[in-house]
Design a binder for these strands. Structure first.
Lengths: 331, 331
DNA sequence: TTGTACGCGTTATCAA
DNA sequence: TTGATAACGCGTACAA
């Protein structure tokens, strides 16, 4: 592990000159520059980022804290963030909070301790850790879910409206006993999608509601669907708030010999790659995940560059993609 | 951004005592400990990991460099790594090399500069960057694909054998014109799966081979499938080397009105969550992705603890999961 | 243009 | 048990 002074010694110059030569800041004699370059190369010298950042009081790394690495929605966001960050010379550290407030707090602590330049996160809940970021002045951008208290940059989707439109689409298709499978209370997207569902039902004068909450995972969807189907007046259609849950729901429907688009209408959030592959193809609410990530990264970089700029909240629109699962078979 | 000396001043002790109190190393007067704790809390003190690591000459972060964040196989690996690392007090930095040697090299550089404690990676190709890690003495574990030159810890899958068995399964089902859709030349898994396919064909005395390489993505699968299907004697079954490619292949088959398990047999690598959801359910080669990650993390931690221990290469087995897509309809 | 010397925030050594 | 102090490796005033 050669240091800058090893290089200096080998090149016959001072450490200051090595630093300047390698960073191309101040003007250095071209002859010395190449001597330094060669020495560094021969020694296999890699500048110590720890020391450099300690000295510079800044890091070129962004932390992205998402709630589920296995959810394609979030990995698409990650790609968006990465592409933008990359071109600006930043690295991205991906952290998986696993929809767990404790893990989220731990990762925020790590981000704080590592002195990352900024944080992008999809808040798990009320998110206590966030205040410490604010207090330390670390730039933060919330994605997918809003952060309580204003003054935060955010990139969200009008998910309540999207849920309402999806439900209205089911109503328009002729379904009348529409149910909703959503995530845990407290997770904003889960609450908003449920609210949108209720909006549509109320507007259409439909009752009663058939609602079920469960974990944002396949097992949760399976469980919720089973309970809904076992109830006295089971739903004839389902709005599912998350693609992982949709897997469980579809499994449960198959087990009950209920075919989507014929026996029961189904619309699920997120246009995953396999949505058009299943039979029948799945009607989905497509969220612009990649763009959310890219936009969040842009916002974060802008704030790092100018901490005083007014906070921005961008809301992107989702798009209903109609496929076979929400059709209603002729009676 | 309060420092350790702010805390020391406020608690009326030396910085050394603060350090000791907060790290619980040496024995400190309990009274002082609580005074320090309170002072730190009130100040909102977060130790500067940069300074700490610079001093300690070590970091508690692992870098995981994978070739595709959007591939469920790799995100499962990530979870395995994370779970093991977490319990050992390490954080995991996830990097997406995107099957791109340049990006891989850049991330290896970052890992080197940030002085991470160790690296787990799925090598993109010949991987030149790796030597610099070795040379610097940074522990490395290869996953999914081997690293040229011995002396590296590795966690692999006997993917050639798995491909052979999958092909034999198709043969046993009655298919005779079996084709193979695999990834780019140079990516070891792509090469090995192709080799396994050839093994089976040779052993059964079947010819000619119907092979096609393309990018490990849906578009690649689509393109490969189309070319194979357009050929003079199109295949009656397909072995697909990757789940992303499988999406493209299935789309292409649907477009050609070819139904898996009836018109054409299909086996694909990786038991993705939706494999049993499509119609017919997809026969897959299930790789123990989570376990690969967990094992790699264990190996890495062991090497960090003891750099002198002999390198280990673990090979895990894949499992063929028979479902509908590889059945052969009665003639 | 180059070199000397200090400080970034910690932890570890050594005395007290 | 505690405190003063020297590193860790780098960037950058300041002086030459």
């Amino acid at each position: 592990m050669p240091t800058i002074s090893d290089v200096a010694r080998k090149a016959g110059v001072s450490t200051a000159t090595v630093s300047r030569a390698l960073n191309g800041k101040s003007s250095v004699d071209p002859v010395l520059v190449s001597r330094v370059r060669i020495a560094a190369e021969e020694l296999g010298y890699h500048p110590n980022a720890l020391a450099r950042n300690l000295r510079r009081q800044e890091t070129a790394v962004l932390a992205l804290i998402i709630s589920d690495v296995e959810n394609p929605f979030f990995t698409s966001i990650a790609r968006g963030v990465e592409d933008v960050a990359q071109t600006a010379g930043y690295s991205v550290v991906l952290c998986n909070s696993d929809e767990n407030a404790d893990k989220e707090r731990r990762y925020i602590d790590v981000a704080l301790q590592e002195r990352v330049a900024g944080v992008i996160l999809s808040p798990t809940g009320l998110s206590s850790g966030i205040e410490r970021l604010r207090q330390r002045g670390t730039p933060v951008v919330a994605v997918d879910r809003p952060l309580a208290g204003h003054g935060t940059d955010q990139v969200l989707v009008d998910t309540r409206l999207a849920a309402r439109e999806a439900t209205e689409h089911l109503i328009a298709a002729g379904y009348r006993r529409i149910g909703c499978v959503t995530g845990p209370s407290g997770i904003r997207t889960a609450d908003d999608r449920l609210a949108g569902y209720r909006d549509a039902l109320s507007a259409a004068g439909l009752a009663p509601r058939r609602e079920r909450r469960a974990a944002y995972r396949a097992a949760g969807g399976r469980e919720a669907a089973r309970k809904l189907l076992d109830a006295p007046h089971p739903p004839d259609a389902l709005l599912v708030a998350n693609s992982a849950m949709a897997i469980g729901v579809l499994e449960e429907l198959a087990a009950a010999k209920l075919r989507p688009g014929r026996d029961v209408g189904v619309v699920a959030f997120d246009d995953v790659p396999w949505a058009s592959l299943i039979d029948p193809p799945q009607t989905v609410v497509a969220q612009p995940a990649y763009e959310i990530g890219a936009e969040a990264a842009r916002l974060l970089l802008a704030r790092i560059a100018d901490p005083a700029r007014p906070p921005e909240a961008r809301t992107l629109a989702a798009r209903l993609v109609e496929r076979g699962s929400s059709r209603r078979a002729p009676v």
